[in-house]
Design a protein around this nucleic acid. Structure first.
Lengths: 125, 125
DNA sequence: CTAACCTACAACCAAATGGTTGTAGGTTGT
DNA sequence: ACAACCTACAACCATTTGGTTGTAGGTTAG
């Protein structure tokens, strides 16, 4: 279990990349609020159906949305658990800043085994 | 359209894009732990100095690191406040899922004015 | 002064992104 | 059956990204 983080790093890449586009974030908002078919989503944007389809695919690859087939349309839903798994990554970075993780070489292992860095007590000075 | 969030959207793009690369995340960890010169950072990676320089530039454009000139070297520091500003974006999305924001058109304004979504009682079912 | 060092930036290149159109197959309604 | 609709995917294109090398200028050490 030396470097279990190789997978995690790729997952982080996918997460942040998926979120790094305003159209995708907007799609994510909509499917988090409720199920939507791809074509229904596509009607909201000034681009082709295929383009929106690709954006949904990016979100799906990142695990942020899942699709369910219902007849001729596929309904996309936002995966809030996946979304929640992003926050610990940021918390880990904050923990580094806070000095709670001294050894930089260890923190990769830390991030894999300790999803919680404790402390919403984010008061600083 | 062109809500007040046009700026925010671009900033979010920059944030998430900057974080969507494992080398950049690693650089960010190091500069969050303490100041490092660009060349000192570069020695840690199997790529050219210029490549690392570009990565630092991406982080800098996103506001996640700042540089200070000290003699012939420029020292990079992680900006933890900028890092913290990412979390509310995720919270906003979670709030959408929670159903706390009904109108999708309004949430952009919400995200600008309400950084905190409160609610420690996040128990669902 | 000179050499070594650190940074900045331009030019270039392969690969990935984000968009398009087109084609094909499954589903629904009349 | 047939038309309309939804989806999936391939092919293609312009732009961006992530890397390289090279060049030039400022800074420190000898």
């Amino acid at each position: 279990m030396a470097r279990a983080s190789d997978e995690d790093e790729k997952r982080a890449d996918a997460f942040f990349h998926a979120l790094a586009d305003s159209t995708r974030r907007d799609i994510l908002r909509r499917v988090l609020a409720g199920e939507h078919s791809v074509s229904a989503l596509a009607r909201n944007y000034d681009m082709s159906f295929a383009a929106v389809q690709k954006h949904v695919a990016v979100l799906e690859r990142a695990g942020l949305v899942s699709k369910r087939r219902s007849g001729r349309e596929s309904l996309a839903t936002g995966e809030v658990e996946a979304l929640r798994s992003v926050a610990p990554m940021l918390s880990e970075l904050e923990a580094v800043w806070r000095g709670r993780i001294g050894r930089l070489d260890d923190l990769l292992v830390e991030s894999a085994t300790a999803p919680d860095v404790a402390g919403p007590t984010t008061e600083k000075e």
